[in-house]
């Protein structure tokens, strides 16, 4: 998972790799230290688990967004696609009464399919990613409301469903650290995405598309096909996020989702992935997502007024990205 640094980018000598990531971590560590010193309630097990739980959905969405952003594209539909997948799961499990594995499969397939559609619109119809996924964002928001009849779909008939996010496999072995399953899912998705990026052809083309799409095309590669594949994989990851949020709320909330893409993109950017493409890591995105939730949680623990929480978060986003720029300049 730590081997996801850009293969051929101008990242200096190999030794600096570890140093790089150490610095990327430093912002997060600094926040944790500050909050721990400021409040004894911050480092309690229960609170650390609450932070991880709060990171799980945004983290998974941010990983989906990372893949797309590395290709030089953008995906504004991750939030509402997540909701759409949750609603599909609700239809399959509650309205149709089918067994749990089919619900899980349906969510991931729905995500993959929508990603395929976005990718095809972008690659074949040459609609800019910003516009194509903006359209998809609205289409999926509307479809979620239509399919659900604007009402939440509850999973009361599928008792095991909320265990996907809220249960704790770790806790059943080590009762002292009941890490919610949703957090394991986040790390699993992160591990898989990091593997795909660093070890597979899809990963290599993801970076290549973002660095110089024309060069890839001229070397005889079927650019469209790889691009569509990246959006489809991102879509399937949104399907996982849909399962996580539906499981956590024990319901598919059809009106939720818009605005979540901005938090996901913020996590990606804080994590050092370049919005112009060709450069980025999954580990960085994970750290970015953690910074966002540590900040939100810590400010709440300190009873900071909500209007000021927003101001501080904005400042930290700019600082984090500026620190990343400085770091790259000095190395």
């Amino acid at each position: 998972m730590t081997e996801t640094a850009i293969p051929a980018a101008k990242s200096g000598p190999r030794i600096s790799g570890a140093f790089h990531r150490l610095l990327a971590f430093s912002g997060l560590i600094a926040l944790v230290v500050v909050f721990s010193l400021a409040s004894p309630n911050f480092m309690q097990t229960q609170n650390v688990l609450a932070i991880l739980q709060a990171t799980s959905v945004n983290g998974v969405l941010a990983i989906a967004a990372t893949l797309v952003i590395i290709t030089g594209g953008i995906d504004l539909s991750v939030g509402t696609l997540m909701t759409f997948c949750a609603v599909i799961t609700g239809v399959v499990l509650t309205n149709l009464g089918l067994p749990l594995p089919l619900g899980i499969l349906a969510s991931i397939l729905a995500g993959t399919f929508c990603g395929l559609v976005s990718g095809t619109i972008i690659a074949k119809l040459k609609v800019p990613p910003f516009i194509a996924t903006l359209g998809m964002m609205l289409i999926l928001k509307g479809l979620s409301l239509v399919i659900s009849g604007t009402k939440p779909i509850y999973f009361n008939d599928t008792p095991g469903f909320n265990q996907i996010a809220l249960g704790s496999a770790v806790g059943s072995v080590f009762p002292a650290v009941p890490v919610p399953n949703g957090v394991l899912v986040l790390f699993l998705v992160a591990g898989l995405a990091a593997f795909v990026l660093s070890k597979t052809a899809l990963g290599r083309y993801t970076f290549a598309l973002g660095s110089n799409e024309e060069a890839v095309r001229l070397s005889g590669v079927n650019v469209d096909r790889w691009k569509i594949a990246v959006y489809a994989v991102a879509g399937s990851i949104c399907g996982v996020a849909g399962l996580l949020i539906a499981s956590r709320l024990n319901s598919a909330q059809p009106a939720l989702g818009q605005g979540y893409e901005l938090d996901a993109i913020a996590a990606v950017v804080i994590g050092g992935t370049s919005l112009s493409g060709g450069r980025g890591t999954v580990v960085g995105t994970l750290i970015g997502a953690l910074i966002i939730s540590v900040l939100a949680n810590g400010l709440r623990i300190l009873s900071v007024a909500q209007e000021w929480q927003t101001v501080v978060t904005g400042c930290i986003i700019i600082l984090a990205v500026y620190a990343d720029i400085l770091r790259r300049r000095t190395l």
Binding site: S39, N41, F42, Q44, Q46, N47, A50, Q53, A54, V57, I245, R248, L249, S251, Q253, A255, L256, G259, S293, A296, N297, R300, I301, S303, Q306
Partner: peptide, 22 residues
Amino acid sequence: EGPESETQVDRQMDMLAAALSR
């Protein structure tokens, strides 16, 4: 505290969890 919109059920849960930790 309260979420930005009345649809953001999960954000409200994060707020409640943080409040409990406090």
